[in-house]
Amino acid sequence: MKLKKQKKKINYILFIFYLIFVVLSWTFNYQPGVQIGINFTDFVKSMFKILPFAFILIGLFEVWVKRETVEKYLGHASGCKGYFWAIILSSTTVGGAYVAFPVAYSLYSKGAKLSVVLTYIGSSAITRIPMSIFEASFLGIKFTLIRLFVSIPLVILTSWAIGKRFYLKPAK
């Protein structure tokens, strides 16, 4: 716990230095610093369009969905079907990895199996429906199909392997 606090402290100090750098760049019109500042605010804007909503959904999920339900579909007794549901669920994820991690953690704390949770993370990176549509329209449907068909089995396989080797302390 102490280590974590220290890490947070370092994070804040880093951020303060960063802020000072950006503000100084603005005042002295130092181009790289100004550009970095613009990038930062752009990203903050696009994330705040997604994150609060995603976290409200996570909150609702934690309150309403019973542990037994998650265990049944994604838990140790779910067998192969767990992977199937993880992929379906991941394809509807909005945002990016930064949304997938907290959602995945919620699933885990509600009793989903580690390998299924990892499948969810991996496939949310590659199967998100809006993104795949976007990809197909720019690079062609053949490209998207190859990517999906090759990567999904590999994601399941590696998630299964990691799930076997690693143990994550049960979430509260």
Partner: peptide, 30 residues
């Protein structure tokens, strides 16, 4: 209400890591 509370708490907890990530993103994109 409980759900909103949970959402808020989780959001605040992860915020420092998010800010660091955005910092790194803004630099790499440059």
């Amino acid at each position: 209400q409980k759900a909103i509370k949970i959402a808020w708490k989780k959001f605040i907890n992860i915020m420092p890591s998010f800010i660091i990530m955005l910092m790194l993103v803004s630099i790499t994109l440059y």
